[in-house]
Design a protein around this nucleic acid. Sequence first.
DNA 1: CTCTCGATGCGCT
DNA 2: GCGCATCGAGAGA
Length: 195
Amino acid sequence: MTPLPREFYARDTLLVARELLGQRLVRWLNGERLSGRIVEVEAYIGETDQACHASCGRTARNAVMYGPPGHAYVYLIYGMHHCLNVVTEREGFPAAVLIRALEPLEGVATMRRLRPGRPDRELTNGPAKLCQALDIDRTFNGIDLCARGPLFIEAGTPVNETNVGTGPRVGVRGDERALTAPWRFFVRGNPFVSR
DNA sequence: CTCTCGATGCGCT
DNA sequence: GCGCATCGAGAGA
């Protein structure tokens, strides 16, 4: 329907991360609407966060994180997988939320075709898996998620506080703070949460 | 189910 | 040249 407004993203990253749970990620692919409910995210906040791609300062790769909020930051990892983030906070401050898992809602048949041989629970239960299921690659890096384009986030079903789980981020490296900060948020008990 | 390990491209030092 | 915000195959239990 309507993309979430830029003001949604132009806030504290931990608040945005928490409130992204339950929202709906929408992807238009060849005239078909694919979508999923966001059930797991992680926050990456500023140059002092050693797990953040901006921890070594601004580069060509992480430039989008320094830009205005509400844009997609998509990167290639391990030479073969893509990960989707949404840029948060004010322009000039590098921060983003990684979308780690979705519960498939629309276009499941197409997702199955894009991830052949996988059971339904493994269509979108990881950051690179969901990019594969929704056909998201680096050509989406920098696109505006607040426009009615091929990729955006719209209002979904809110997640009650008692159903929100938190914990340290997955697969990160860095100092004690990076390893232990509880900046991963997920919907408790949801079968599509990764790991 | 759990664990281990290799794949593979590219941005950065 | 190194190292990565991951995934999936294969082995074992």
